[in-house]
Amino acid sequence: MTYLFDGQLQRYYYDLHGIQYNYYAVVKEGGRFVLKPKLDVPENRFYLKKLIHIYEGKLNDIGDTDRSLSKRWFENPHNSGKVKRLTNHLYNYYRNVTNASADIFLWTIFKDFKKKIQGKGFIKEEPKDNTEPIGQACFTAFNLRATNKYRHKTVLAFCLNRYMNPFEKRFFSQHNVQVDEDLLALSDLLQWVFRSAVRDGKPDQLYVPSKRMRTLLVKWLNSEI
Rank of each mutant, 00 (worst) to 15 (best):
I123V: 12
V27G: 03
F158N: 00
L4R: 05
F171Q: 06
E43K: 14
D103P: 12
L221I: 03
P203A: 08
H152R: 12
P133I: 10
F142Q: 09
F158P: 03
F110G: 04
V193Y: 01
V41A: 05
L51P: 00
C138V: 09
L4D: 00
D129N: 12
N148V: 07
N148M: 09
Y12Q: 08
V34G: 03
P133A: 13
L206E: 06
G7S: 08
V34N: 03
I19R: 11
S101Q: 14
M164T: 10
G57Y: 06
N176F: 14
A137G: 13
S173V: 14
P133T: 10
W107S: 01
L35S: 06
L59N: 06
L216H: 02
V155S: 05
V179A: 13
K82H: 14
K169I: 10
L39V: 07
R145K: 10
T65G: 10
K115H: 10
W220I: 02
Y13M: 06
L156M: 14
T154G: 08
D188L: 15
F142Y: 15
E132A: 15
F122A: 01
I54R: 09
I104M: 04
V208Y: 01
Q10I: 12
D200T: 07
L190F: 03
Q118Y: 11
L160P: 09
F105K: 07
P77W: 02
R195Y: 05
R214H: 07
V218N: 06
R67L: 09
